[in-house]
Nucleic acid binder design. Structure first.
Lengths: 167, 167
DNA sequence: ACTAATGATTGACTTTTTCAATGGTATAGG
DNA sequence: CCTATACCATTGAAAAAGTCAATCATTAGT
C-alpha cells in the first residue's frame, strides 16, 4: 500500500463502493488548493457519473447540453452553441447531426441570416430532454450531496461569475 | 419563439475587450444553472488560459500538476498520481516519462513495495515548478478576477468538498 | 459593386481517453 | 513453503475529443 507506517484509524474499506485510494495524503498539497485543479477534478468526477447514467438514453453530457439548449426556447444558432459550450463549430456540426438523425432536433435556416442555422427541439426531443434532465439532476445531486441547499446555490452563483467573467 | 428583433441583429463589434458572442441570451437557460455545466465551462476557460501561459515553460496543466505533486514532499506513487488527478495510469507513465527525460523528476523504486515507483522532483524540477506556479497563480487570478478574496476562499472550499466527496 | 468578414461544413491531423494484455511483485491461505 | 489472487507500472491499440485550415454561401462595410 502507501508509504504510511501508521494504519489508518478507521480502516473502513468494505461497507460500500468507496475505493478511497491513497488520495487523502495529497489533499494538503499546494495543488489541492488550486481552484483550477479542483474544478478539473470536480468536472471529471461529475461528467463521468453523468455520462454513465445518460448512457441509458444513448446520450452523453455533450449531446445532452445541445439538446437542452435546443429545448430552451432561445433558438440558438450553431455558432452560439459553440461559443456557449466552449466547443469548436465543427464539433457542433456532428453533435447536431446525431441529434437530428435521431429526430430530436431540427436545423432551420434563420430568415434573418441565411448563413446561420437555428437549432430547435422536436416533440420527441423535448420528451427525451425531460427524461435526460431528470437523470442529470440526480447525477448532480450525487455530486453535490455533501453540500447544503444554500451551499449549492452559493457554488452555482460563484461558478456562474467565473464561467461568464466576460473575458 | 418570441425572442425578437430588439437585440440589434447587426451585432456589435466591440473591437478590443469583449468578444461577447451571442452568449448572454443563453445564460438564463436551465443548462446555465447546472453546476455540472458551469464547472465544465469554467474549467475549459481556465485550463485554456493556463495552458497558453505555461507554454512558455513547455508545460501544460497536466504536466504541471504532476510536477507540483512531485514537489509536494509527499512522494506520491504513480498510482496515487493517477487517482488524484483522475487520469489513467498509462497517462501518468507518459507524463512522468516526459518530465523525467527533462530532468525535472525521478522515479525511485519504493523500498516498501518494489512494484510501485515514487516520483520526486529534482533541484531543476523544483526551480521549474516555482516558475510554473507563479504563472498558474497569475492565470488563476485572471480566472477569478471577478471574485473577492473571501469569495475565492468560499469557492475553493466548496469545490474541495465536491472534488473529494468520498464517492 | 467590391472587398472583407461570418456561419456552417468538410477533411486532415493531433491529443486525450479508454482498454486489454504483460511482467514483476506483494499478500493471503493452505 | 507454495500457490492463487491482486496490484503496480508499462505497452500498445483503438475510440473519442480537440484543433486547424479550406470552402461555399451569405452578409456587412465602404
Amino acid at each position: 500500500m502507501s508509504a504510511q507506517p501508521t494504519e489508518a484509524p478507521g480502516a473502513q474499506q468494505e461497507a460500500s463502493a468507496s475505493p478511497h485510494s491513497g488520495i487523502e495524503r495529497l489533499q494538503g498539497t499546494e495543488l489541492a488548493a488550486e481552484v483550477e485543479f479542483l474544478t478539473a477534478r470536480a468536472r471529471s468526477l461529475g461528467s463521468g457519473r453523468a455520462n454513465q447514467l445518460l448512457a441509458d438514453l444513448d446520450l452523453k453530457v455533450r449531446s445532452y447540453s445541445v439538446l437542452s439548449l435546443a429545448c430552451s426556447g432561445e433558438n440558438p444558432s450553431q455558432r452560439e452553441l459553440a461559443d456557449f459550450l466552449s466547443l469548436d463549430p465543427s464539433q457542433i456540426v456532428s453533435l447536431v447531426d446525431q441529434l437530428e438523425k435521431r429526430g430530436a432536433v431540427t436545423r432551420e435556416a434563420d430568415p434573418r441570416d441565411r448563413r446561420s442555422k437555428v437549432i430547435a427541439a422536436t416533440a420527441a426531443g423535448r420528451r427525451l430532454y425531460r427524461a435526460a434532465a431528470a437523470i442529470v439532476r440526480e447525477s448532480e445531486a450525487q455530486s453535490l450531496r455533501r453540500l447544503s441547499t444554500a451551499e449549492r446555490d452559493t457554488l452555482r452563483s460563484l461558478l456562474q461569475r467565473v464561467a461568464f467573467n466576460g473575458d
